[in-house]
Structure formats: C-alpha cells, structure tokens
C-alpha cells in the first residue's frame, strides 16, 4: 500500500528528503511525543537515565550478540572439520545449542535472583533467597540431559537405519553374484 502526493510536488519533496511527506509527518509526530515524555523521563537523573536508555539499545547488539556468536562458532569448531561431512555430527551442534539457549535466556531474565544480587529479598517478601541458583542448575542439567537422550535416540535410529541399508546392499550384491 502506498500513498502518493500529486506528482510534481511529490517528486521534488522526495528528491530532497528521501521519502514521502507522510513519512516526515509520522516521524515528527512520534518525536514530539518522545520529547514530551522524554523530558519527564530525564527530569530526575538526566545522565543516568540517558545512559540506561542508550545502553539498553546497545546491550544486545554490542555485548550479547558478539558473545553468543563467538560461543556458537566455538561450539561448531569443537566438532571439527568432520561437521561439514557428517550430517549426524553437524546436526549434533543443535543438541548443545538449544539447551544452552534456553538455559541462557532463563539466566538472562532471572540473574538477579539466581546470582543472589538482591540482598533485601528475604526481608521484604519473607521468602528464602537461596535455591534459585540450585534450581537453575538443575533445570540446565535437565535440559542438556533431555537433549542428550534425544540425540542418543536419533543416533541409534541412524545407525540402525544405516546397518539395515548395509545389509540390504549386501543382499543385493549376493543376489547379483
């Protein structure tokens, strides 16, 4: 769906600006709202809030992404050059990747409790503050364990299928003789 201005005016504007006037109007409206709310957001601690806001914009792209990308590459390198050839081993990386991802997002969300960063937790809520780390470790163990079981089953099916195929090939060869 495209909105177009009358031809002559539209082209001239688009040439200078790079998009339709509607684009400018919409963005200007949102910026006005952002400034109205932003002034109030920054009022108490301008530098601190600005730092958090920009930091929140960058934390994934500049910190998390390089971290998990390098880890993922490393995991792929661990299974070596054979990965590219052997389908089972290449797919095997997902059996590490998936549980690591799930355990990772659990830690990313709940790290203040898991790593016991909240000193007043028990005094505020009357609930024990220990146990989050132990439960996260057990969940992580269960995730990797379940993934290992699934991999074993797949490998067993794979070897059984390839053994059956080998037997079938042998039979064919024998029959031809």
């Amino acid at each position: 769906m495209k909105f177009r201005l009358p031809h002559a005016g539209g082209i001239a504007f688009r040439r200078r600006y790079g998009a339709s006037p509607l684009h400018l109007l919409l963005v200007a409206t949102s910026f006005a709202l952002a400034v109205y709310a932003g002034v109030r957001l920054l009022k108490a601690d301008t530098f601190g809030v600005a730092l958090w806001f920009v930091g929140a914009a960058l934390v994934h792209d500049v910190l998390l992404l390089p971290l998990y990308s390098v880890t993922d590459r490393a995991a792929q390198a661990v299974c070596g050059a054979s990965c590219a050839r052997d389908f089972v081993v290449r797919v095997g990386v997902n059996h590490v990747r998936v549980p690591a991802f799930v355990a990772g997002v659990l830690l990313l969300v709940w790290w203040p409790l898991i790593l016991r960063r909240v000193d007043h937790f028990t005094s505020y809520t009357g609930l024990p503050a220990d146990g989050f780390l132990a439960r996260w470790l057990l969940i992580t163990a269960a995730l990797f364990g379940a993934s290992a079981v699934v991999l074993l089953v797949r490998m067993w099916h794979g070897t059984r299928a390839s053994r059956r195929a080998a037997r079938a090939r042998a039979r064919v060869r024998k029959a031809r003789k």
Binding site: V27, T29, S30, A37, G38, L41, A44, D45, F53, P112
Partner: peptide
C-alpha cells in the same frame, strides 16, 4: 519484579514515561 532496584530513579516514573517514549517509535 525481582526487587533489584538498581535503575536510576523510581520504577513508576521510568517505566511509565519510558513506555511513552517507546510507543511513538513503535507505531512509526
């Protein structure tokens, strides 16, 4: 929600005004 009040200010102020700063850009 984890009572980890390390953000720079009152949660109500930050979360409410932050939402309005965000939502304009979201609609665009």
């Amino acid at each position: 929600v984890q009572l980890h009040y390390i953000f720079p200010g009152s949660f109500y102020t930050l979360h409410f005004y932050g939402a309005w700063v965000f939502i304009g850009a979201f609609v665009v």
